[in-house]
């Protein structure tokens, strides 16, 4: 097992308790919240049935059915609350995964920087860990959806459910799920790839701060702002177009892709330089 893999395992192990807590919160909130929402609905239905005895079918023709999407949107706070929490926690950890090595009296950074391994492996292992944490939560959400659907089918009688609602259209049409799980695999790679680029840029800014302290903090912020400006500038130039600057959407897309790749390479190169030559404990 090479040292990069060992570092990845170490990074994952350091976070696993918090990660497990996030997973647990997600499970409890989503499943519990959906259960409560469905129960509340059925209580309402059964209450009506007690007052005016009728079949579920009659009820449905009078008051309508409860489609899966509506049930999910009624439970939206329970479903998306933990998603927001997880995103916030991971965003924070993008910073903490570095700074925790320096915080307090236990400067673990000494140990890591003295390892007989390329210093970039520290960078790669932290990046790998963050990517794995993010994708793990996405995978968890994907796996939870059929569970939600089953819970819905169990609690809501067939007469009150519209015909089949397969999950793929549900994800495609729900505005939030569609963002977490993009419609095509190509888009998944592009959007999460952009996320990897963003994390890489932030890591580079962090390394600037760790190398030059206060000056580095300013430098890091400027670097992040400059990177964002470079990525946004073609889009702004195009939409304010005099006709001769006009570029085709596909060309703009490829340009953005190219800029992203260049920014990634520059960030990685700069990070490598900082880690090997400038970083200070």
């Amino acid at each position: 097992m090479n040292r990069y893999v060992k570092l990845v395992l170490m990074e994952m192990h350091r976070f696993w308790k918090l990660y497990a807590a996030l997973i647990l919160v997600t499970l409890v909130s989503q499943l519990g919240g959906l259960y409560l929402t469905l129960r509340k609905y059925m209580n309402g239905v059964n209450g009506e049935l007690t007052l005016n005895p009728q079949t579920y079918t009659d009820y449905a023709s009078r008051f309508g059915k409860l489609p899966f999407e509506i049930a999910m949107s009624r439970a939206a706070l329970w479903i998306f609350g933990p998603v927001v929490l997880c995103i916030a926690a991971l965003l924070l950890y993008v910073f903490l995964i570095w700074y925790r090595d320096w915080l307090g009296k236990n400067t673990f950074a000494y140990r890591l920087l003295m390892l007989p391994t390329a210093r970039m492996n520290l960078f790669w292992s932290k990046l790998t860990a963050v990517i794995t944490f993010v994708l793990g939560l996405v995978a968890l959400q994907i796996v939870l959806l059929p569970v939600h659907l089953t819970l819905y089918r169990t609690l809501i009688p067939a007469a009150l459910r519209p015909a089949e609602s397969p999950l793929v259209p549900f994800v495609r049409h729900d505005p939030i799920f569609r963002t977490l799980v993009p419609p095509t695999f190509l888009e998944f790679i592009l959007y999460y790839g952009a996320g990897v680029l963003a994390v890489t840029i932030v890591f580079t800014a962090i390394l600037l701060e760790r190398s030059f302290r206060l000056k580095g903090l300013v430098g890091g912020i400027l670097y992040t702002v400059a990177a964002a400006a470079i990525l946004v500038s073609p889009i702004i130039l195009v939409t304010s177009g005099a006709d001769s600057l006009a570029i085709y959407p596909m060309e703009l897309f490829l340009l953005e892709l190219g800029l992203g790749v260049i920014l990634l390479a520059v960030s990685l190169g700069l990070s490598r330089y900082l880690m090997n030559r400038k970083i200070t404990v």
Partner: peptide, 25 residues
């Protein structure tokens, strides 16, 4: 032990995301 756990986790991620996109396509 850590390696097996991490590998299992990685496989879980690959399978669940992969299955979704196979279904979607």
């Amino acid at each position: 032990k850590r390696l097996w756990a991490a590998a299992a986790f990685a496989v879980f991620i690959a399978i669940s995301i992969g299955t979704y996109y196979v279904q979607a396509s």
